[in-house]
Design a protein around this nucleic acid. Structure first.
Lengths: 334, 334
DNA sequence: GTGAAAGCGCTAACAA
DNA sequence: TTGTTAGCGCTTTCAC
């Protein structure tokens, strides 16, 4: 039988409440009391029963992170950042995988799934604005990711448009003029792809560079293989270009590999740029110039905001939308 | 104020116990009772309070997964597999990141860290056998990974030696004779690298092929960049070889990229093989031949075993060691 | 098949 | 600064 707080209290010759105070960082306690308690804890190998604490305090000390998958570089790195930010604030993280399925994302936002947690950070990719309005979770929620939803929740988002704008301008500054946009997508819904493409377009406009329709390739799946195949088709079609902007790093890395396979040099013949700054970007050959979309900052901000909401009780706070700061990571591929 | 079970009972005109039965899948219940309970649950938007359930049942329905990092393809994929295996068994997963730090891994095994969970799956990389003996967790534990420890815990492990053996034989069968072993390590401790190298050596012996010392490269860090640099050095040194066996996929992928950059064709000039079968292996150019080390199976087995231990109470069960089945994934790089 | 009562181990008022 | 007293909401006997 595991020791309880009452046992500790008895051994330390204090009351349960005093032991409880000890665990909750109550400051006013004589050194003698404190050390008696500590000795008792060691003697009994006592561990707080967190279920009991949760029941009685209404807090679990755990937050949920709902993402489409873990085994994708971007989400894996996001999850890592969230877990470590949470760890720093003394919280644990339960990871829920939604597989990017509409119904699973919805059930997360309706609270019909998963454990009881104090708050939720979710990165939906299949939900529309109306879905989000229909959410019925009764805990604080911070949404994270690419798409800007209206809705009752806080949102921490990537600077998709501005990031793509900056990168495009950057390529112009390096003398490139005919840039293939790989993964481009025009859509009424502000998907990440659409927003990034908007930035690409605006940069052309501002720089007075004509945007060549043939160079706009997409939509394609956001993975390495698609990037390689798409650029291969572009070459086969006889397109002329001096740069490739993959709308995420996976696409860019795939394209870069294929260009090299075909004997082109990078950045000699073609400059290549990506978006996200996944860890692999810096390890590629050559290292990939990309947009650091602020993953770490997003994770940190989302966790901090969530903890705030949990502490104030999420009451009548007005939902905030925060856009992560971003920056161009200049590496040898440009 | 959230509804409680007593509210549901009142509205459904049954006792609390009956509602509890409903949630615990108790089978004997009239259809009428059941539907009254269901109506009450909907009416009150009732949700089970899991903290209370945990306190009273002694189960949390959550297991912890302790891994060195999330943002590494192998661990990300392992985590994904564990989460989905656990989900299938109705369990949630709290992910703890140990950063491969000795003290953090130790504190996980001492139970001085993290939430209260029903069981623990840990993949230690910095612990020695004596550390493991000194563990004091009072919940069931299943260890997972590369190194075979003795110790009081169940272990689910990768077939490092046999996998490397099979892959080496496979390369021989494809006519290769001078194979660079990239990431080789000889060590008294049975690290993954050392075990894989053992298999490499045994395959040479059994096939009667001489193992050329110059072709044994390592130890090197197990990432892409090291793989590329190491193979570049081998080429600079004028080594002659017809195949490269990266002791994990990252090394192999880095080497493959570098070989191609230097104008060699794969598998025409050089065959390349890896170990782990991370998702990216199949998407590389050319797709990478590798050893499927049974990650999914390991995750599934570890979760199943853990759930078993939780259910029987971990009592005096003898710890078991299970070696995952593995297979050579034949792809275009050989 | 269903009900009543007794805790699980902790926190939170409030008192001392 | 420390102690007392009630619960938190559920599961679990055991009786009906």
């Amino acid at each position: 039988m595991a020791a309880t707080m009452a046992d500790v209290a008895r051994v330390a010759r204090v009351s349960k409440k005093t032991v409880s105070n000890y665990f909750n960082g109550y400051r006013y306690m004589t050194a003698d009391t404190r050390s008696r308690i500590e000795a008792a804890i060691v003697e009994l190998n006592y561990k707080l029963n967190l279920s009991a604490r949760s029941l009685s305090s209404g807090r679990t000390g755990t937050i949920a992170l709902a993402i489409p998958e873990i085994a994708h570089p971007y989400f894996a790195e996001l999850a890592e950042a969230v877990v470590s930010a949470a760890q720093r604030r003394g919280m644990s993280v339960v990871v829920e995988v939604t597989a990017g399925q509409h119904d699973q994302e919805l059930s997360v936002l309706r609270g019909t799934r998963g454990r009881s947690v104090d708050g939720l950070i979710a990165h939906p990719i299949a939900l529309g604005a109306s879905d989000i309005d229909s959410a019925t979770v009764d805990i604080p929620v911070v949404l994270v990711g690419d798409r800007v939803h209206s809705g009752p929740f806080d949102f921490v988002t990537v600077a998709n448009e501005q990031g793509a704008y900056d990168m495009t301008r950057f390529l112009f500054e390096h003398g490139r003029r005919r840039i293939v946009a790989l993964g481009m997508e025009e859509s009424p819904v502000p998907t990440a792809a659409a927003q990034r493409f908007d930035g690409f377009r605006r940069a052309h406009h501002d720089a007075g560079v004509e945007m060549v329709p043939e160079l706009l390739v997409g939509p394609i799946p956001w993975n390495r293989l698609s990037g390689a195949e798409a650029i291969a088709r572009a070459i086969d079609a006889g397109l002329e270009f001096d740069a490739v902007f993959g709308l995420n790093d996976a696409i860019a890395l795939g394209a870069m590999a294929e260009l090299q396979r075909q004997g082109l040099t990078i950045p000699g013949d073609i400059a290549v740029a990506g978006f996200d700054d996944v860890e692999e970007a810096a390890l590629a050959f050559p290292p990939l110039t990309t947009v650091d979309s602020g993953r770490e900052w997003i994770a940190e901000t989302a966790v901090n905001r969530l903890v705030e909401l949990i502490e104030v009780g999420a009451s009548e706070e007005v939902p905030t939308v925060t856009v992560a700061s971003h920056s161009v990571k200049y590496r040898a591929s440009v």
